[in-house]
Structures are given as C-alpha cells and as structure tokens.
C-alpha cells in the first residue's frame, strides 16, 4: 500500500471541482424545500442546464454566457413545475419526477447535434497573494470562478435565511403556510420565487458538469447527480453550512476512493462508494431520535388560500 503517491494538494483541488455541481444543485434545492416545496426534478433541471450551457458556450465562445443561459433555462423549466404544483395543485412528488423525465428527454433532443464536440474552457483563476501561498494556494485559490461562486452562493443563502426579513418570511411560509397566509404573505408567490432560484442553481450545477468537470456534452451525463443533491439536503438537515460539508463529503469520497485505487491501496470500493448514503441514514436516524429533524413543517403540502 502506498499512500505516498497521493498528492494531498491535488486531491483537495480535485475534490473541490468534483463537489461543485452537487453543491450548487443542493443549495438551490434547500431553498426550495425551506419554502415548503419538494421538487424532485433536480436531475432534470441539472441536465437541462448542462445541455443549454454547453450549446450556448459553444456557439458564443463564452463559458460565462453559457452558465447564465443554463441558469435561465433550468429556472424557466422549474417554473413549469411551479405553475403545476402551486397554481394547479398537482402532486409535488409526481410532478417533480415528471420534471426529471422531461429534462432528460428534452436535453437529449437539444444535445443531439452537439455530441462529441469540445467546449470552450473556463480559465482557472490565480487569486493574487492567496494563490501564491504554498500548499494552501494550489488547494483552494487556483480554481475557476464557479467554485467560488458556489461557495459565495452558500454564504449568501445562509445569511439571507438567518438575518434578513425575506429569509424569515421564506422560512415562515415553509413552516406554516396557513399562518404566513393569515399574516398577509403571498405564499404562492414566495414559493414560485424559491422554485425559480432552485432551478437556476441546478442549471448552474449542470453547466458546471458539461463545461468544466467533463468539458463536453454526453447524453445522460448527470448520471444521478441530481438525486445525490437531494440526499445532501436531507443529510444537511436543511442548513446551508452543512450543505457544504455534505457536498464535499460526497464529492470527496468519490475522488478519494479513486485516488486510493490509483495508489494501489486495497480498499473496499463498493463500501466506500456507499458510505455517504450510509452516513445520511445515520444522520437521519440520529436527528429524528433527538426529536428534531429540521425539515420544514409544511414540506410537500399543497397550499390554497381557500383551504
């Protein structure tokens, strides 16, 4: 066994890249769930973002434009979910699953002519001063801009939910939509905004896959990343800070086990791959045993002012 072959600097650097797509999707989904809506269509929105981001970046030559288009496209798609569940009161679970199927099919259709092409690459930033610090620099401060955008987004979500009036209203809607409604808040409108935001984040996560992590379009390329994002929200018990922990844990274990294998270590690969899910179950059991699961009380319940 030779752990010496693993370079911890490169390991942490590739872990951050590997975790970014699910981090983006998970933080968006957390906001959606905080508002009391369960959107199981993350996978579909991610893959839509992946294909739209790729197509726009390829045609415009600008990865940033690709990201913007990906966020918009996935957000628009998520609005269809919002209209169905919020205005027409369809079942959230079924509609979310439908959204995944629509996203997978739609992306395959849009992406057909773009298979096998190469995306314009997103340059890595070299942050002055911080990037020059030995060891820490290459680990944390020489990534592409989206890695920092994802972390900034998490910080922004955390601060908004905790310190702002809007955050408080959003949480109130998620905890008890009847009470929030009685106070005069527009429950449906707030939920639509949350769904829109969640869609945009998923789209960014998908575009990160097709523009940075894999840099190409392949049909079905998210390969379940959306479902992992959903698991991370539960793992994090709906807290922004723990979303980062969860995403880096999931991404980190994948990268770590591949590195261990490449280093020739005899690791139980299947067990390591399953470990984030096992940890999620343990976390769930622990928090529910303590009597506080952290899930918004109105999660998944439909709301209509007349009820």
């Amino acid at each position: 066994m030779d752990f010496g072959a693993i370079n911890p600097i490169l390991l942490v650097a590739s872990l951050m890249v590997s975790a970014t797509p699910i981090l983006l999707a998970a933080i968006g989904e957390m906001v959606v769930e905080k508002s009391g809506v369960l959107n199981l269509g993350v996978e579909g929105m991610m893959i839509t973002g992946a294909v739209v981001g790729f197509v726009v970046a390829l045609n415009s030559g600008s990865p940033m434009l690709g990201f913007a288009a990906a966020a918009l496209a996935a957000a628009v798609l998520s609005l269809s979910f919002g209209i169905l569940t919020q205005y027409l009161l369809s079942n959230q679970v079924a509609t979310g699953l439908g959204l995944t199927l629509v996203g997978l099919g739609l992306s395959a259709l849009i992406g057909k002519p773009y298979e096998g092409m190469k995306a314009p690459s997103l340059q890595d930033l070299h942050i002055p001063l911080l990037g020059d610090i030995p060891v820490i620099g290459p680990m944390f401060f020489q990534h592409d801009i989206m890695v920092y955008v994802s972390l900034a987004l998490v910080a922004a979500v955390w601060a908004t939910l905790k310190y702002t009036r809007f955050g408080l209203i959003l949480r109130a809607v998620g905890e008890s939509h009847d009470a929030a409604h009685a106070l005069g808040y527009k429950v449906v409108r707030i939920r639509m905004m949350a769904i829109f935001f969640g869609g945009a984040c998923s789209g960014l996560g998908g575009a990160y896959l097709s523009l940075v992590r894999v840099p190409q379009w392949t049909e079905g390329m998210t390969a379940g990343a959306g479902w992992i994002a959903l698991a991370i929200v539960v793992f994090a018990s709906w807290r922004a800070g723990r979303i980062v922990v969860g995403a880096y844990l999931f991404g980190g274990i994948t990268v770590l086990q591949l590195n261990l294998q490449a280093a020739g270590a005899q690791v139980p690969v299947a067990l390591l791959s399953a470990s984030p899910y096992l940890i999620t179950i343990i976390v769930l059991v622990t928090i529910s045993a303590r009597g506080m699961h952290g899930a918004p009380a109105s999660l998944g319940r439909p709301f209509h002012a007349s009820h």
């Binding site: 693993i6 490169l10 590739s14 390329m221 390969a223 591949l258």
Partner: peptide, 23 residues
C-alpha cells in the same frame, strides 16, 4: 488500475482519469 464500478458516468470516468494523472 482504477475500478469505476460503472459503464457510463462521464463525471466519474473523468475523476478516475484525473486521479491517475495526478499520480
């Protein structure tokens, strides 16, 4: 040799390639 335990998962395949290149 790295085992990806999948036939098709572009992100994981890319990660496996990167892990080996890093080493």
């Amino acid at each position: 040799v790295t085992w990806a335990y999948t036939w098709f998962d572009p992100a994981k395949e890319a990660d496996a390639a990167r892990a080996m290149l890093d080493q």
